[in-house]
């Protein structure tokens, strides 16, 4: 099964290299100029990367015919999908580590309790993207990802503009989260992990019924 991981790393070499170069630039920028404002965009890029990596490799297998090979090999289809999800966790961990480095480099403007939240965000995005990618293709992954980002923020802004959800209410919500973060984090992690497992089952189901 490790062969699948090797193959994914070999084929994603260019992308991995590009990611590292971008991160190095960000980290360098933050460390040298010490501008905390850059942390936001950095995190955005990294979360998107973490969310997309496994779907990228899922899509690659589809286009190059690798599925034809691997589905005729001794490896079961369940294991093929399992490997993709393990790679997903792996990439979120690596991204998580880089987030910590970036944050420290920028002088820790982000509180450490936000780390698990970021990790959960990446896993959550992956859980949604994987079945979407397998079923509807990479183009839809981009569409869904944009929807995931813009729909809630758009909703929030319009509610705020319409005066339904006032600035005070938002601040109160943030305060509530910050206050209860120690008890909320485990719940959130559990929910996201459950969702991740559910997503694995759905993707496996789709993959098992695919014909090559």
């Amino acid at each position: 099964m490790l062969g699948l991981l090797y193959k994914d790393i070999y084929t994603a070499k260019k992308e991995l290299l590009l990611t590292l170069v971008m991160l190095a630039l960000f980290v360098g920028y933050n460390a040298i100029l010490g501008q905390a404002e850059m942390l936001g965009p950095t995190l955005g890029v990294m979360v998107s990367l973490g969310a997309m990596t496994p779907t990228y490799s899922l899509n690659y297998d589809k286009t190059c015919g690798w599925n034809k090979f691997v589905c005729a090999s001794p490896i079961s289809r369940t294991k093929v999908i399992l490997m993709k999800y393990l790679e997903g966790i792996l990439s979120s961990l690596v991204i998580g580590l880089l987030v910590v480095v970036c944050n420290l480099a920028a002088g820790s403007p982000m509180p450490s309790w936000a780390y698990p939240l970021l990790f959960c965000t990446i896993l959550f995005a992956q859980a949604i993207m994987m079945p979407v990618c397998l079923r509807l293709g990479q183009n839809m992954v981009v569409v869904v990802f944009l929807l995931m980002v813009f729909l809630p923020t758009g909703l929030l802004f319009s509610l705020n503009k319409a005066g339904i959800w006032t600035d005070e209410a938002i601040r109160a919500a943030f305060d509530f989260v910050e206050h209860h973060i120690s008890s909320l984090t485990p719940v959130l992690v559990l929910v996201v992990l459950a969702l991740y497992v559910l997503s694995f089952l759905v993707t496996r189901h789709i993959y098992r019924h695919m014909e090559f």
Binding site: Y10, T11, K14, C64, G65
Partner: peptide, 9 residues
Amino acid sequence: DSGFFPPEM
């Protein structure tokens, strides 16, 4: 009839 190995490898 068609190859099935990653072209990048």
